[in-house]
């Protein structure tokens, strides 16, 4: 009778003891010293796990800074103040942090750019981009406007207005998650110091662009000739501004006949704003 109680108690007790001892032994034998700086850096990172630094999440970046010599200014969400804090923990001087933000290289609202296809499928840009005939838009380079980028934004910086992505510059940290997910590559990153950008993604020639969109880049080259800093070139029938050379003088904005070039900070999609502030 008594053995029916004693045996199981002893067996389970011994099993527990053996495993306890095994784990205690393992925790000493297999002890891995973690660098305390990893924890320190991880604690001051924003924790949004946006992946803008190029590492898998904030944990990955903290680890890479300490163990793989990653730069201290890679966290777009934390900005330059965070870069300095990380540099202080690492005991190095902070690398130059260039704050960037995302902007939409398209002004083709439902009014400005023709939509040829009555698309009734899954409302996701990645699905819409693979249908025959390319997209609901007549322009195959334009913003589809189903908001796949809005969904992936961890900071609530994007929204869809008049069939186009609108960027809330105050919220955008420039992580680039939306740039990666956009099947049309119509979103791009630009330094926050940059004030002038080309708002068209089309590689078509001028006459073809005119057929589908009233605000597309016609590749006329007026901006190239007007730029005093020689910062603009035509690439694939599209004006491209080299932000390193650009002095933000704005002479190209006044020259552009299609009103495709404009200031980065003002959303120029309706005609009134374009006429009053963007041209």
């Amino acid at each position: 009778m008594i053995s029916a109680i004693v045996y199981p108690t002893v067996v389970m007790g011994v099993l527990g003891l053996v495993f306890g001892a095994l784990l205690a032994f393992a925790s000493i034998k297999f002890f891995v010293k973690t660098d305390e700086r990893v924890t320190l850096i991880r604690d001051i990172l924003p924790g949004a796990n946006c992946g803008g630094c190029g590492y898998p999440g904030c944990d990955g970046y903290a680890d890479a800074v300490v163990n793989a010599g990653a730069g201290t200014g890679r966290c777009a969400a934390g900005g330059s103040s965070l870069a300095e804090k990380i540099a202080a923990i690492m005991g190095v001087t902070s690398e130059a942090f260039v704050p960037v933000r995302v902007f939409l290289r398209c002004r083709g609202t439902t009014a400005a750019s023709i939509r040829t296809v009555a698309y009734d499928g899954v409302k996701d840009c990645r699905s819409a981009a693979i249908i025959p005939g390319s997209t609901p838009n007549a322009c195959p380079y334009g913003c589809i406007g189903f908001g796949t980028c809005v969904e992936v934004c961890n900071f609530g910086a994007l929204s869809i207005v008049e069939g186009l992505v609108q960027v809330n510059a105050a919220r955008c940290v420039g992580c680039g998650a939306c740039v990666d997910v956009c099947p049309k590559s119509v979103l791009a990153l630009a330094p926050q110091s940059s004030a002038v950008q080309v708002f068209c993604n089309s590689s078509w020639k001028g006459p073809d662009v005119k057929k589908v969109c009233s605000v597309g880049c016609l590749a006329c080259g007026l901006c190239v000739r007007s730029c005093p800093a020689k910062a603009i070139t035509l690439q694939n029938n599209r004006a491209v501004i080299d932000v390193k050379l650009c002095t933000n003088c704005g002479s190209c904005i006044t020259k552009c006949p299609a009103k495709t070039i404009g200031p980065l900070n003002i959303r120029c999609v309706d005609k009134e704003t374009i006429d009053s502030q963007c041209a």
Partner: peptide, 29 residues
């Protein structure tokens, strides 16, 4: 030991300890 009825208890104990042990060992090895 004729203690077959203890299988649930001991299996849980074994699996939990094993996973912990493997985790510690893998981290090092």
């Amino acid at each position: 030991l004729h203690l077959e009825y203890l299988y649930t208890l001991s299996f849980i104990l074994i699996i939990a300890a094993l996973v912990q042990f493997v985790e510690l060992a893998l981290k090092k090895v």
